[in-house]
Design a protein around this nucleic acid. Structure first.
Lengths: 360, 360
DNA sequence: TTGGCCCGTGAATCCATCT
DNA sequence: AAGATGGATTCACGGGCCA
């Protein structure tokens, strides 16, 4: 295998073997929708196709849980190897498998960022009236380790797209409907095809354009299709030739929708980081000028080196502010006010930061 | 220990030992809110520079995942012994623990009926903008084994109380706020008190009046309080004397709200905005309160699950109303009147819907 | 009485960079 | 590598105060 991963391809084969043949740390994001076929079918029948009738035949169930756990550990271990050190991983599942997957993720050292519930607008009803209608699925979003500090998350952008409120852990989407669902000879091509809207939120929120998105359980290729549409690269794997063929055909029809470049000024973005002293150096604040602490009677005087003096303390705007507040730390930019020499208005020194950058 | 369980008591002691000292199979329902093993490290400050009052209670400290798993296996094993063969068990948790709990439940032979997501209307925000806002918790509802055939589930009644649509796995309740939260000397008595509305839905949907409800992690006694209010018996355990004393005092103040007997004929039929049961869960309508049918002499009584009984029929506000009118269907919101406890005025229950929406 | 504003607070695995 | 420093970051609801 080359040093460069085979991007924008649908690979045929066992996902564990295929991932192990890819270069290390080549994926920026992994999204996985693994099978969970261990209970409803397997647990009812023994391997020799006799029906399990014992009331508490734990052996059979235990064996199939173990097999599922082994499979899960193996594909997650392979996934971990190909995941970039700044990458994150998503797994989707239902109550049949997600608890086992979640526990194994923790055991392998992954660290949970969020669990997300996909609340279905139109779930399959509960036919027999013996349970609550199962109207959601669960996604786990994890990083490689507790100590990993960097990962991609477009918090600010999704907040802007969500009525200026931070995006929550409950996501509301309809299930994959008739217009979206892939059919082969009039019957659905895959039983658990996921809606593109769900993958859109996953990929758009936790990757950047150009990133490599890996899906080890391709199916109809929804992950790869949304990745391609959003200008990401993809690698996806399935061991069924039929799915590989289907996904390739689907992907051929996907045209990336190019975003225009983002405007320079993001409203509500943090101010540029500048040293406080540059306000003094640039003349925006005169040496010796006075800063009011909040709306109190406490004033600080500005020194030529960017330190300030107030209440008997000399130090940074942050440290002096924190001491006056009795807190371990503070953001001095949001505490101190200067008097605008033109209007006589009192304003936060925070308002001077953009000017200082322009002046540089 | 006697053959009869010590019902309607708050027991002081380790829940594993205490459960092992109870008679076998004495509980019809177990609801457990175990420690979540939150693993918090540093203090968290809000943007307004106040400190988040974190859950740093000693009872939430575990040395490792293994220690937490061992604890979980032990209390679940003890719970299994005291759970009736027709009983079911609920556990609530967050992503910190629920995946481990779920896997262990399966390993012990419990069989999942549903996982339920409690979607919080008003969660604590994500302070640092580095994740999605964690806006839900998860409940697991399980039976003792795959082969268990009998358990209590008031499917029809909750469907009747939910606009004639089957109750789903996503439950929307606000968190336990001021007003409901117990205070001791002005500070919260417990860091993780659960809202009564949540327990109402659990207990009303999966037990019958007179059933024994066991909660091994009593805390402020919410489970027992709701059980008592709904005419169930309770056993609850805590190893902290302070919590036991608090719960006892709380329970002394709880008066059971008696339901009238259910009418013989249950009307079951399909129709739809706010589930009527929300009015009951949120306390806007008391269990057992009476609703007047138009300006007639006919009165209905309200059941804990949102069904009503009147004129010999039990069912939704819509279907019972329709039968009384001799029509195929009706809008129950426009038919039934309640008496405002403050003014003594009769008003349409429709008038309560906005309040319920706000609460939701 | 009512409406508006301010403040407190809730199960939270919650920073980035430089020295 | 660990510690110090700069400075970025929140939503819904209820209660109390004041006009």
């Amino acid at each position: 295998m080359s040093n460069h991963p085979p991007v924008n391809q649908v690979l045929l084969g066992d996902c564990i073997e295929m991932m192990n043949s890819l270069p290390e740390k080549c994926a920026d994001l992994i999204f996985a929708d693994p099978p969970y076929n261990m209970q409803l079918s397997n647990a009812l029948w023994r391997p020799n196709m006799t029906k399990v009738d014992a009331v508490d035949d734990h052996w059979d169930k235990f064996a199939s849980f173990e097999a599922y756990d082994k499979f899960t550990r193996e594909w997650l271990t392979a996934a971990r190897r190909v995941l970039s050190d700044n990458g994150t991983l998503w797994v989707i599942g239902s109550y049949h498998n997600i608890y086992r997957v979640g526990a194994i993720l923790m055991d392998l050292g992954f660290w949970t960022l969020n669990d997300i519930v996909w609340v279905k607008k139109n779930p399959m009803p509960q036919m027999k009236g013996v349970r609550f209608c199962n109207a959601h699925e669960t996604l786990l979003w994890v990083k490689k380790s507790q100590t990993q500090t960097k990962y991609t998350f477009h918090y600010r952008e999704f907040k802007a797209g969500n009525e200026d409120k931070q995006m929550r852990s409950d996501w509301h989407f309809p299930i994959c409907g008739r217009g979206e669902r892939l059919l082969v000879n009039g019957v659905k091509a895959h039983t658990t095809q996921k809606p593109e809207a769900l993958l859109h939120r996953v990929i758009a929120s936790t990757t950047n354009p150009g990133d490599v998105v890996l899906d080890p359980f391709c199916g109809t290729g929804t992950t790869a299709a949304v990745a391609k549409r959003l200008g990401r690269r993809y690698i996806t794997i399935d061991r069924e030739e039929a799915y590989v063929a289907l996904a390739k055909e689907r992907l051929d029809g996907v045209i990336p929708t190019l975003e225009e470049p983002r405007a320079e000024v993001f409203v509500d973005a943090p101010k540029p980081r500048i040293p406080f002293v540059s306000l003094v150096e640039s003349g925006l604040l005169a040496v010796g000028s006075r800063l009011r602490f909040g709306n109190t009677d406490i004033y600080a005087s500005v020194h030529a080196d960017g330190a300030i003096s107030a209440g008997g303390y000399c130090g940074s705007i942050h440290k002096v502010g924190a001491l006056l507040l009795g807190l371990p730390n503070s953001n001095g930019w949001k505490l101190w006010h200067f008097t605008d020499p033109e209007t006589g208005e009192e304003k936060l020194i925070d308002a001077l930061r953009p000017s200082a950058v322009v002046k540089k």
